[in-house]
């Protein structure tokens, strides 16, 4: 799409090249967010710091000291970015991976149930989509329910699903993975139904003139042409799986995982711990999504479908 900006004469400023792309603006916006974060941390932590001064008998501390103190409270209302970064560094690089205090260990627990749930969900989603595309009854009866299944706040039953499955004797990874499955199968189903129907009538007709069976049409025409849709919906699905795994860890009294860290942090008022778990979860989500994006690029290139 052409934009008005492209018609302007290029300016002479050395920063012009940097600012016209995406990288420059993103860096500026991120810097602005961090600056706002620091400002908010100072403002939100000030009331508590004033209380401490009052109790300590310090009258009118200099502004520099107030700012420095608000940014180094042990349990701040809003921890400063450097405190969170320090906590993440301490709990990842400086702890051994097997330690219960290592965020790497907790991320690993969450990641394993995320991936298990995501794989099952993707498989289920593809299977459902194949069924829906080939059966008129499934298409008309199942599709509305698949869509409305997502209006059910399934995360709300996460605790119960886990309690129920524990009672039957299924423990460990699978109950949490079930929640991830439920959340991730939906985008895959919807995307794949669209993708499997993406071949045009003329291409389907060609397959018919080759007298190919339904299975051959599926394998040689429908599935390959559904690949871009599959990857797009897998990106949504993996992010949803991670949310499912984290929420699945909340109410079960789970002792390991990022969700358990969040809950423990909120019980004991350890805000720095909550924020560091959150940031790690965000990094994990971004990593998973970009991993799928990378796979997408490689696969589509090999298939000659890269745009």
């Amino acid at each position: 799409m052409t934009e008005a900006g492209t018609f302007q004469t290029p300016s002479r400023s050395p920063f012009a090249g940097l600012m016209s792309g995406t990288a420059g603006p993103v860096i500026v916006v991120v810097a602005a967010i961090i600056a706002i974060w620091y400002l908010a941390a100072v403002l939100l932590n000030t009331p508590f710091q004033r209380d401490i001064y009052q109790r300590g008998g310090i009258e009118n501390p200099p502004l520099a000291q107030l700012v420095a103190d608000t940014l180094s409270q042990p349990r701040p209302v809003l921890p400063a970015p450097h405190q969170v970064a320090e906590e993440i560094w301490k709990t990842t690089a400086e702890k051994s991976i097997t330690s219960k205090r290592s965020l790497v260990y907790h991320s690993g627990v969450t990641l394993s149930s995320t991936l298990l749930g995501f794989i099952i969900g993707t498989g289920l989603g593809i299977a459902l989509a194949i069924g829906v595309v080939h059966s008129r009854v499934l298409d008309k009866s199942l599709m509305p329910w698949i869509i409305s299944s997502q209006t059910i706040p399934i995360l709300a039953i996460a605790p119960m699903i886990i309690v129920v499955l524990n009672a039957i004797g299924i423990t460990g990874l699978l109950p949490k993975a079930m929640i991830s499955t439920y959340l991730s199968f939906f985008p895959v189903t919807v995307g794949m139904v669209k993708g499997l129907r993406a071949p045009e009538a003329i291409q389907l007709d060609l397959m018919k003139t080759y007298s190919s069976s339904t299975a051959q049409t599926l394998w040689k025409l429908r599935l390959p042409s559904a690949m871009p849709y599959l990857f797009a919906s897998m990106k949504v699905g993996v992010a949803a799986s991670l949310v499912g795994a984290i929420v699945g860890e909340l109410p079960t009294g789970a002792v390991a995982g990022l969700g358990a860290r969040l809950l423990a942090g909120s019980y004991y008022g350890q805000t720095v711990q909550i924020w560091s778990a959150l940031i790690v979860a965000a990094v994990l989500a971004a990593g998973l999504v970009s991993l799928i994006g990378l796979t997408e690029r490689v696969v589509l290139q090999r298939m000659g479908m890269a745009r």
């Binding site: 993103v26 500026v28 942090g265």
Partner: peptide, 30 residues
Amino acid sequence: VPFLRRGLLPIGNLVSALPIIGVAPIMVMW
């Protein structure tokens, strides 16, 4: 502001994929 649009859109896309639900304990504290 085209500058803001180029800067905020990738970040907005990223944040949409994040487990935002995790801010719940913080909001309850605040």
